[in-house]
Design a protein around this nucleic acid. Structure first.
Length: 271
DNA sequence: ATGGTAGTCCGACTA
């Protein structure tokens, strides 16, 4: 980014659950170019670091840092403004899962042009009675604790917690609340876990700027009927939230051949 | 029409 000193420039950040990057790399790279994105946080890449398709991103002018262990989960960040060397694949206190317990590939922290980006794939939870649900709440509580510590260390830090939160924080974030009675994504404890980021100073910066679902199930003609959910969000630290100028949800990316079931969420920030 | 969608690695799991 070569600009005259003193001029105001903006940086476009985006997050997108790509639901397998190997079958969608060309489509994702084309979106980055078309939408003029500087940094993209991806979730559900569903591939190992070795298998990640870097070429389409390189051709579009992006470098990609990846964190994938197997065919499940997987996160990555593509940047055309570079990366600092402070890369993290877990946040402090992040819960492990499984037997033997291990950290899943659900978080990737990188710094791009002074913004600390966390690409996050919050555990789904499945059903309220499932151990995955408790894991989800533990994971969110640990993330909040870590984020509070980062802000305590540096109150001016520009931090973006962006990704697939697997939570619909408000009733209007699902098309029919009666169908979600007793389900995950809308339960009070999940909603409180999401809201509680406010208490440590974070602001969800897309809500006040755009109204749109971010996810439509592949089944039951959910997209043509606009029966979706809003579950992808950007929680910004105070310094970053203050520099946000716009936000969009790229609904058109759900159309056409071979879409992800999620669409990109874009945030413009002053650099 | 007793299925239904789409991804992974290849009958089952995840979302």
């Amino acid at each position: 980014m070569s600009v005259p000193a003193g001029s105001v420039t903006t940086m476009r950040l985006a997050t997108w659950n790509v639901n397998s990057i190997r079958i969608r790399a060309d489509r994702v790279a084309a979106f980055l170019e078309r939408a003029d994105i500087d940094v993209l946080a991806m979730q559900e890449t569903k591939c190992t670091d070795e298998a990640f398709p870097h070429l389409p991103f390189q051709l579009a002018g992006y470098d990609v840092l990846t964190h994938g262990l197997n065919q499940w989960n997987g996160v990555a960040v593509a940047s055309r403004v570079g990366f600092a060397d402070d890369v993290a694949t877990v946040f402090p206190g992040m819960p492990a899962w499984g037997d033997p317990p291990a950290h899943e590939a659900r978080a990737l922290g990188v710094t791009c042009a002074g913004v600390r980006i966390w690409s996050l794939y919050v555990p789904n939870g499945r059903v309220v009675a499932d151990p995955h649900y408790a894991y989800k709440l533990d994971w969110l509580a640990a993330l909040r604790g870590a984020a509070a510590d980062w802000l305590e260390e540096d109150p001016e830090a520009r931090i973006a917690l962006m990704g697939d939160w697997n939570i619909a924080p408000r009733d209007e974030d699902v098309w029919d609340m009666s169908l979600f009675d007793g389900a995950t994504h809308v339960s009070p404890p999940e909603r409180e876990a999401f809201r509680a980021f406010e208490d440590i100073g974070f602001t969800e910066v897309t809500r006040e700027r755009v109204t749109q679902y971010t996810y439509w199930d592949y089944q039951q003609l959910r997209f043509p009927r606009n029966q979706g959910m809003r579950i992808d969000f950007v929680q910004a630290s105070p310094a970053l939230a203050a520099s946000v100028t716009d936000a969009t949800i790229e609904r058109n990316e759900r159309k056409g051949k071979g879409p992800s079931d999620h669409v990109p969420v874009v945030v413009d920030v002053q650099s």
